[in-house]
Amino acid sequence: MTDTSPASNARNYPLLAIPHIQLHGPVDGDMYASFKSQLVAAPTEGPLVVSITTLGGDPEMARAMGDTIRLLREYTGRETLFLGKVAVYSAGATFMSAFPADSRFFTRHTRLMIHERQMQSTIELNGPLNTLRYALEAKLHEIEDSIHIQEEGFRDLVRGSKVDIEDLKAKAPSNWYIEAEEARDLGLILDII
């Protein structure tokens, strides 16, 4: 019997075999707490490898974890490597954007999903007419700021890749799913293991 599976590329990246920080499940406060405790327990020398498998979650928790990675890299000069496993959806892509494109990897058959931020909200208008306008303006400001934050993240995600920010913004409203091979070809990740 002949093995027809593609040759493994893992030997080229031995550091990725056992990530120092392994995150899985929804991106939320529990994942953030796990991230912080694993970071404290991780070795303080050499590259830091972080893996994630997620169907998404809270983008602000993803940004908070990403800021920790960015600060670690900027203040210590330490190399940080990202390993996406199986699914890197939504807030997972937000977290991935904290790593330079040439420090990102996926396992085989991993899928990336990028979409616009979601909002579900109800505005109740109740009170004197002159005050109702402020409630509407406050919600509009919240939406505008969320769009600004989203675009910052999109720019970080595509920096150093072949993906144009306008193409990403055009595809994001309908959930852009990207297979590992396409992510590599687009330069969103360095390689597949």
Rank of each mutant, 00 (worst) to 15 (best):
K85Q: 13
L136F: 12
G127K: 04
I193P: 15
N12Y: 12
Q22K: 12
A138Q: 06
H148W: 14
F105S: 01
D28G: 12
D167A: 10
T76S: 14
G187M: 03
R184T: 00
L39M: 12
R104M: 05
V27W: 00
Y177A: 07
P173V: 06
R73Y: 07
S37A: 11
T80W: 00
Y134M: 12
I123T: 08
A33F: 02
I193Q: 05
L55M: 12
A87R: 13
A172T: 03
R159C: 13
I143E: 11
V40K: 13
L83H: 04
E137F: 08
T131F: 02
E142R: 07
P19T: 11
I52V: 12
R63C: 11
G25D: 02
H141T: 06
G56D: 02
H24Y: 04
Q38G: 09
D191N: 02
F35Q: 02
R78P: 02
H141I: 00
Q22P: 04
D185E: 10
I189T: 02
E152Q: 01
F154D: 14
L81I: 04
A42F: 05
T76Y: 03
I149K: 10
M96L: 10
L157N: 06
A33L: 05
D191Y: 01
S103D: 09
V27D: 00
E142Y: 13
I149R: 06
E124Q: 15
F106W: 03
E166A: 05
S174G: 09
P14Q: 12
S5V: 12
T53D: 14
Y75N: 15
I52L: 15
A98I: 02
E179P: 12
Q120M: 12
T80Q: 05
W176S: 08
E142K: 12
H109P: 00
H109W: 01
I189L: 03
R70V: 15
L136K: 08
D164Q: 10
A62D: 13
T122V: 01
L112C: 04
T53Q: 04
E181Y: 05
I114T: 11
E144P: 02
G84K: 01
N175Y: 15
K85T: 07
R108I: 11
T94I: 14
A135C: 00
